[in-house]
């Protein structure tokens, strides 16, 4: 096995193992912590695929922000936080099992049918891609870039207006 294959197997084991830990744990809070490990494994997979910038965004946004949001949401919810020994199943589990199996078979069918092309030699490196993106932001895509800032501002103000009780 090459070094990349070793890293891939490690990342895949971490991702799948953490995913298993996430869905089997009783505590939603512990499940969220497992989810952070899943995000980390997925970030490693992105980097292995040559999508380094996406890997960094995965760490920054998913581990840094989304995970925090989810942990906050759990900690702010009384029924979830109040009872760490909540039952693992509710009466909707057969329906969920059917839906999950259907989705799983669809995904497996897709994976098997897809012809996976290999990355070409000379594909952009991580810094190369980020540099190109940075240059693009400052030249061709200057308007979308600034509009994104306005969008974030709107999101910030909207969040404050909605979430704060006057």
């Amino acid at each position: 096995m090459t070094a990349e294959q070793v890293v891939f197997v490690l990342a895949a084991v971490v991702t799948l193992g953490s995913a298993l830990g996430m869905v089997t744990t009783r505590s939603v809070f512990v499940g969220a912590l497992w989810m952070i490990a899943v995000f980390g494994g997925v970030a490693a997979l992105f980097i292995l695929l040559g999508a380094g910038f996406l890997g960094i965004v995965q760490i920054l946004v998913y581990i840094g922000a989304i995970a925090v949001l989810i942990l906050f949401a759990i900690m702010l919810t009384p029924r979830v936080m109040g009872d760490p020994n909540a039952p693992r199943y509710n009466r909707q589990w057969p329906l969920v099992a059917v839906m999950a199996s259907a989705l799983a078979s669809l995904l497996v069918a897709l994976v098997l049918r897809t012809d996976w092309p290999l990355a070409q030699e000379g594909a952009p490196t991580i810094t190369g891609f980020a540099v190109e993106l940075g240059k693009g932001f400052m030249t061709t895509y200057i308007l979308p870039f600034e509009v994104a800032s306005v969008l974030l501002l709107v999101a910030l103000i909207g969040a404050i207006v909605i979430a704060r009780e006057e």
């Binding site: 910038f53 980020a130 540099v131 240059k135 932001f137 400052m138």
Partner: peptide, 8 residues
């Protein structure tokens, strides 16, 4: 958004 700008 700052990251690509800082790299470039």
């Amino acid at each position: 958004f700052l990251y690509p700008w800082a790299v470039a």
